[in-house]
């Protein structure tokens, strides 16, 4: 359906914006390494199911793309364009996010099974993975426009999945409570950012937090 397609497209675009921004400016200023490391964890724990679960060629290719691009981005950030200045303001304690997501995944899962716990963990972790990046934005008070486009496209992906889930619930009777709940949590975390993005960036102002 259109929402899912638009969501996936926006997910894809967000990664391309980020890669393009890093490659062109040859800099990772303003980008949170911690958020990027969390995404590697999210993609690895959710998408390694491609080794034992086949959905479609599209699904497999997308999973491979998200795993490899997220690892590549972390590689660029650590080895190629290392930025100690940005690292110094990237101080969000992610061990709490990882630990909390792990505990939640043990409590909330469809079956107490390795694959299902990993799946649940990835959903919880994804819902909060942007926090170090938003925290960094808040500390610096402003961001490059491209960075804000990246965050927007990434947030749009899960937000667009919400109408997709409603659509699938109506048309197929399919409900994934975990994905829906964590997707809503994720969208709420983004809501403040979306609001500022709409008011500043789309109207041509510099992205500055009020």
């Amino acid at each position: 359906n259109i929402f899912r397609a638009a969501g996936d497209l926006s997910h894809l675009i967000s990664i391309l914006i980020l890669l393009n921004t890093i490659q062109k400016s040859r800099s990772i200023a303003g980008i949170s390494l911690k958020t990027q490391i969390l995404y590697v964890l999210v993609f690895l724990t959710r998408y390694l199911d491609l080794t034992y679960r086949y959905v479609s060629i599209y699904n497999t290719l997308m999973k491979l793309f998200f795993i490899s691009s997220s690892i590549y981005i972390v590689y660029l950030m650590i080895y190629k364009f290392k930025n100690t200045e940005t690292e110094q303001i990237d101080t969000f304690p992610i061990e709490y996010l990882i630990g909390g997501s792990f505990i939640l995944s043990l409590i909330f899962n469809y079956k107490f099974q390795f694959g299902e716990i990993l799946w649940s963990f990835s959903l919880w972790l994804e819902s909060v993975a942007i926090l170090p990046q938003l925290f960094m934005l808040q500390r610096t008070g402003e961001a490059r426009t491209l960075t804000t486009h990246y965050i927007f496209a990434l947030g749009a992906y899960r937000t667009l999945y919400i109408p997709n889930w409603i659509f699938r619930w109506i048309s197929e009777g399919r409900v994934d409570y975990l994905a829906i709940f964590t997707g809503i949590v994720q969208t709420i975390i983004y809501s403040d950012f979306f609001y500022i993005y709409y008011h500043r960036v789309l109207k041509g102002f510099k992205f500055e937090l009020p």
Binding site: V175, D176, A179
Partner: peptide, 10 residues
Amino acid sequence: GKKIPNHDEL
């Protein structure tokens, strides 16, 4: 038991 939804999304 609980029904596991098919994990066919990204």
